[in-house]
Computed example of a mutant assay.
Amino acid sequence: MSKPKDNNPSQGGLIRLTARCTAADCAGKLGPADLSAVLARLDLPSHPDLLVGISTGDDAGVLRLSDDLAIVNTIDFFTPVVDDPFTYGQISAAGALSGVYAMGGLPRTALNIVCWPQTGLPNEMLAEILRGAAEKAREAGVVIVGGHTVANENEEVKFGMAVTGVIDPHRIVRNVGARAGDALVLTKALGTGILMTAFKRDHLTDEPYQAAVRSMTQLNAAAASAMLKYDVHAATAIMGFGLVGHALKMAEGSAVTIVFEESDLPLLPGVLEQCRAGMIPGGGQRNREYYAPSVRISDEVSDEIAAIAFDPQTSGGLLIAIPDQQSLALLAELHNCGHRDAAIVGRVTPRREHPIELV
Rank of each mutant, 00 (worst) to 15 (best):
F260G: 02
L265H: 04
G284F: 02
M216C: 06
Q218P: 12
G270N: 07
L267W: 11
D231K: 11
E273Y: 09
S215L: 05
V244Q: 05
R201Q: 10
L265P: 11
V256T: 10
A211N: 01
A189R: 01
C275S: 09
V295M: 09
V259M: 08
G240F: 00
G284P: 02
T236L: 14
L243R: 01
V271A: 04
Y290W: 13
P281M: 06
P266G: 08
R288C: 11
A255F: 15
N220K: 14
L219Q: 10
A211C: 01
E262A: 14
M227W: 01
A224V: 07
Y230L: 03
M239T: 15
T236M: 08
T205I: 10
K200W: 06
A277K: 13
Y290N: 01
S263F: 04
L243K: 06
V295H: 05
L195G: 01
Y290E: 04
L190S: 02
P269N: 04
T236C: 15
A212M: 06
I238Y: 10
D202I: 11
G193Y: 04
N220L: 02
A221P: 00
A212W: 11
P281S: 07
Y230K: 08
G240N: 00
L190F: 05
G284Y: 07
Y290A: 11
P293L: 05
A221R: 14
A223W: 13
C275T: 15
T192G: 07
Q210E: 13
A235C: 11
L268D: 05
G245H: 02
E252C: 11
H233S: 05
A198L: 06
A221W: 03
I238H: 04
L195N: 00
M216P: 08
A224E: 12
Q285V: 13
M196F: 09
L265C: 10
E262I: 04
Y230Q: 10
P281T: 06
M196S: 00
